[in-house]
Amino acid sequence: MTQTSIETDVAVIGAGPAGLFAVFECGMLRMKCVVIDALDAVGGQCSALYPEKPIYDIPAHPAIDAGALIERLEAQAAPFTPLYLLGRRVETLAREGEGPEGRLVLGTSGGDVVRARAVIIAAGAGAFGPNRPPLEGLAGYEAGGAVRYLVARREEYRGKRVVIAGGGDSAVDWALSLKEVAAKVTVVHRRPKFRAAPESAARLDAAAARGEVELAIPYQLHGLEGDGTSLTAVVLATLKGETKAVPADVLLPFYGLSTELGPVAEWGLGLDRHHVAVEPATCATSMDGVYAIGDIATYPGKLKLILQGFSEAAMAAHAIHPRVFPGEALHFEYSTSKGVPGGH
Rank of each mutant, 00 (worst) to 15 (best):
V324G: 04
F325R: 11
V119F: 00
E260P: 00
I70R: 11
G16R: 08
L251C: 07
A171Y: 06
E91A: 15
M1Y: 10
L29E: 08
M287R: 13
L29Q: 08
Q220G: 15
H61I: 04
D40T: 04
A146P: 11
G97A: 13
P198L: 10
M31S: 10
E136V: 13
A66Y: 12
P300Q: 06
A201L: 11
G289K: 05
I64Y: 13
D249Q: 10
S286G: 08
C46Q: 12
G43Q: 12
D272M: 05
P54H: 09
P82S: 13
P198I: 03
T282E: 04
S200K: 15
V276P: 07
K184N: 02
E71Q: 14
H318Q: 12
C46F: 14
L252T: 06
P62K: 12
A75W: 02
D9C: 03
N131E: 04
Q76D: 10
A265Y: 00
A66D: 11
C283N: 15
E214L: 06
R153F: 09
V10Y: 05
R210F: 03
A77T: 05
E214R: 08
G167T: 05
A143L: 07
Q220Y: 04
R30D: 15
L269R: 13
E142W: 05
G268P: 06
V35P: 07
A152D: 14
T4F: 07
K244M: 07
Q45E: 11
V250H: 10
A209K: 11
L104I: 15
A116F: 00
D288C: 01
G223L: 01
E260A: 06
L83E: 14
L85N: 11
S200Y: 08
V187T: 01
E96N: 10
V34A: 02
M31L: 07
M315G: 02
D295H: 05
Y299Q: 13
W267A: 01
A75L: 09
L252I: 07
P79F: 02
K179M: 13
A11R: 06
G44E: 11
G268W: 01
V264H: 03
